[in-house]
């Protein structure tokens, strides 16, 4: 029984890992199209990617649109989250539901809507159009991450700051915001990734001018299955990998850095004796 479970486990792990691993050797292939095993090793497709404006432009478009989406999303969601987590008011339930709704609507439905709506606003094929659409789609996940962080925030800290002489505004800037910073960064990261990976809406509205990387990849896969995609996939995969292990590595580095030996609490011990 145990042995059987073990093999099932190994099988599932291979199933999950194989597609993540397979693109890496393919990106270094010399073959003109997808072929396994790769006939030879080269950096040919990497060189091609970094020299081809039809790939680089969508990459920059995606980075730009992702950054703009992140800024806009945060500007809208941060105050709203404070309102929803910290205040009780009439209509709160509806507001909460409204913020989660974009997550429940299939992207293809929104894509049809944006295609026609932005068509009438002359926002199709523009960076602004994609940013506006992506911001809407980023709201729920950003809100979820942020509200979880805000709910965990100990409000006694704000009372403490007030008792120590800080005005509400000073309390917000010196205490609340710095303590929430990690949560803010993570929710901003979620907004960015949501935009950077978003494919369906971008296919419909980004057009030639604001073409995003996922749209370019989608078109390329549909038409010719250009092996350059293996390069991009490898790079994106690497980015995720680094992003995930970065915190662990940073922690290890910090730990191994020279640590000043901490002073022994002599006086404390003395007082203990005094008490006893």
């Amino acid at each position: 029984m145990d042995r059987l479970m073990r093999w099932i486990g190994i099988g599932i792990v291979i199933f999950i890992a194989a597609p993540l691993v397979i693109v890496v050797p393919m990106s270094f292939s010399t073959a003109a199209s997808l072929q396994f095993p790769p006939p030879g090793f080269s950096f040919g497709y990497y060189v091609q990617y970094f020299n081809d404006p039809t790939w680089l432009r969508p990459t920059f478009n995606s980075l730009f649109i992702g950054a703009m989406t992140t800024i806009l999303t945060m500007a809208l969601v941060v105050p709203a989250t404070f309102a929803l987590v910290r205040h009780k008011f009439w209509g709160k339930g509806v507001a909460n539901l409204m913020m989660m709704m974009p997550m429940a609507v299939p992207h293809i439905v929104m894509a049809v809507g944006y295609y026609s709506y932005f068509g009438s606003l002359r926002l199709v094929h523009s960076h602004l159009g994609v940013v506006l659409a992506h911001t809407c789609l980023s709201v729920p996940i950003t809100f979820l991450v942020l509200s979880a962080n805000l709910k965990g925030f100990d409000r006694t800290l704000e009372r403490a700051a007030r008792s120590l002489g800080a005005t509400p505004r000073q309390t917000f800037w010196y205490i609340t915001l710095p303590i929430l910073r990690p949560g803010l960064m993570i929710s901003a990261l979620f907004a960015f990734i949501q935009s950077f990976d978003e494919t369906v809406v971008a296919i419909f509205i980004s057009g030639r001018d604001a073409e995003t990387l996922p749209r370019r990849m989608f078109d390329s896969i549909r038409q010719e299955a250009d092996p350059v995609i293996a390069v991009i996939s490898t790079l994106l995969f690497l980015a995720v990998f680094l992003g995930l292990i970065a915190p662990h590595v940073l922690r290890m580095v910090r730990r191994s850095l020279v640590r000043v030996p901490l002073p022994k609490p002599k006086k404390m011990a003395a007082q203990h004796r005094e008490a006893a």
């Binding site: 597609p19 993540l20 693109v23 990849m217 896969i221 299955a225 293996a230 994106l236 995930l244």
Partner: peptide, 19 residues
């Protein structure tokens, strides 16, 4: 591994299956 898979875009994973 699962987190990595989760964070890798749908498109990249779809492409990987084509490969």
């Amino acid at each position: 591994l699962i987190t990595m898979s989760f964070w890798t875009s749908f498109l990249v994973r779809t492409y990987a299956w084509m490969v």
